[in-house]
Write a protein that binds this DNA or RNA. Structure first.
Lengths: 157, 157
DNA sequence: GTCAAAACCATCGCGAACGATAAAATCGTG
DNA sequence: CACGATTTTATCGTTCGCGATGGTTTTGAC
């Protein structure tokens, strides 16, 4: 282990990795993934699949586009994911009668039932964070604010 | 609107997507990706490749394992990524003489030169966030704290 | 010195994310 | 009504991320 890395004063140009807030977000996201993985494995779900189901538990019968708008994803990501959820028996995919372009995603009975099992998940996450809900809420709001600022900046490009 | 549903006894209700701090992190991470993409495209880099180079600009000649420890990635992710950086001419990959198991990653002259071009990137990100540096710093610290708590919880499992 | 255990990296397969592109349905304008 | 433009979803190729596994080198116990 080469212990001495005196972080030379040589670089006012490029900040270190630990100065990047994007890396803090990136690595926190990664850490959430590691916490969620064992919990979701028991449900046979991946993390993005879980997020899709959360939106459907909130509001069933959404189109692919509507789900994508909520999750900031597009059809090239969602279509294969939704096909897997269909293969697992959690949802159905049917063309909308009034507009054949749209595909409506509906929970099956099994998909609805999964919601009960999934109620154990959020408390486990809160427990793993070990923070009071006020702190979490504030952090969440700050992140949403940051996200909106970033997306606004991208849109203006 | 988003009254946090208490995970009370037998409450079958699942919090909405917008109540999940993990989703705030997930979507903020994606938003960063969208901001970085056009900036890094000019350098011919992806976002993870850029993160690897940032660590190497900080300290050249790290092993694959050392880079992984910093970025929370493992060889199965890093090896192909580093091979691409090698193919691009930014780094070299050589077995360590004193321990043939380790692979040392060193910047090429071209890889070092890229650092100058990349100095334009961080100011663009700060600009896109539109937040004062104190707010950013505090948010970053909170995220690092959250990350450490989550990883600690995983390790205790 | 020997040999099993550990460390380190590479490989494989799968799911996720996205740019580019295509195909089909619908809409809007003339 | 006709027809080009738009909307919506799907497909393809590339990169990332990770679990599982394998191969080589080093370490450690005896």
């Amino acid at each position: 282990m080469s212990q001495l890395t005196p972080q030379a004063t040589l670089d006012p140009e490029m900040p270190g990795l630990l100065d990047f807030i994007c890396f803090a977000v990136y690595s926190a996201n990664h850490a959430f993934g590691r916490v969620y993985k064992p919990l979701l494995e028991r449900l046979g779900l991946t993390y993005p699949q879980y997020l899709v189901l959360v939106t459907l538990w909130e509001e069933d019968g959404q189109t692919v586009g509507a789900i994508g708008q909520r999750l900031f994803l597009e059809s090239n990501t969602l279509t294969p994911l939704l096909k897997r959820l269909e293969a697992l028996g959690h949802v159905t995919r049917t063309r909308a009668a009034h507009d054949e372009r749209q595909v409506v995603i509906r929970l099956t009975e099994q998909g609805r039932a999964l919601r009960q099992l999934a109620t154990e998940v959020p408390p486990c996450i809160v427990d793993a964070m070990g923070l009071d809900l006020g702190t979490v809420e504030r952090l969440k709001d700050d992140l949403v604010d940051l996200r909106e600022r970033l997306l606004k900046a991208v849109a203006e490009t």
